[in-house]
Amino acid sequence: MSIPKHMAILVVDDQQPMRKTIAYILRQLGLKDIQFAEDGDAAWKHINNTRVDLVLLDWNMPRLSGLSLLERIRNSEAFAKLPVIMVTAEANTEHVLAAMQTGVTDYVVKPFSPNTLQKKLQDVCSHSPTLIKLAAG
């Protein structure tokens, strides 16, 4: 399954170089609607006010961590099915399990290659009913 080119992706990371790197990879994949938030709190406000089809989420951030934002998203009736890919340096088993138990859609460990991110996006797009519809039309 291809990645819908008009998908709105929110990149949530407190490190500007990482936001820029992820955005560069996404643009190389032909995606244009790339949005940004510097922490979970700003991301939550953004999700509530703007169309977001998928979230790429860092774990360690000030104010509201990635895991706390994921909990908010999953506990929200409006956004519970929003695909969320954790993109984080947290690679230990406890972190991965905590994210899985909270309902993360997929998990990417930093550093990662553009191919790894592309494959994760393709996997998520092929399993998300919302993104499958977006790709179809």
Rank of each mutant, 00 (worst) to 15 (best):
P83T: 04
K45N: 13
M86T: 13
Y24Q: 15
A42W: 01
A135C: 11
T50P: 00
V108W: 01
V96A: 11
F36I: 09
M7Q: 10
V52Q: 02
L64A: 03
R72A: 03
Y24L: 14
K32W: 02
R63M: 01
A91F: 01
I22L: 12
M61A: 15
L31C: 15
L54Q: 04
I9D: 06
E38V: 12
Q118K: 14
A135K: 03
G40V: 13
M100R: 14
D41S: 08
N60T: 12
I3F: 01
G30F: 04
Q101W: 00
L54P: 02
Q101Y: 01
K20A: 15
T130I: 03
E77Q: 12
F79D: 11
T116Y: 01
V84L: 01
Q35D: 10
R72I: 02
V12Q: 03
K5A: 08
L134Q: 13
K119E: 09
I73L: 06
K32R: 10
A89G: 14
N115F: 00
D39S: 04
Q16G: 04
Q35H: 05
L121W: 04
K119A: 13
E77V: 04
H127T: 11
W44P: 09
N115R: 05
V124I: 01
Q16V: 13
R74A: 09
V52D: 05
N115E: 09
L97S: 10
V11I: 15
A43I: 12
P114D: 06
N75D: 10
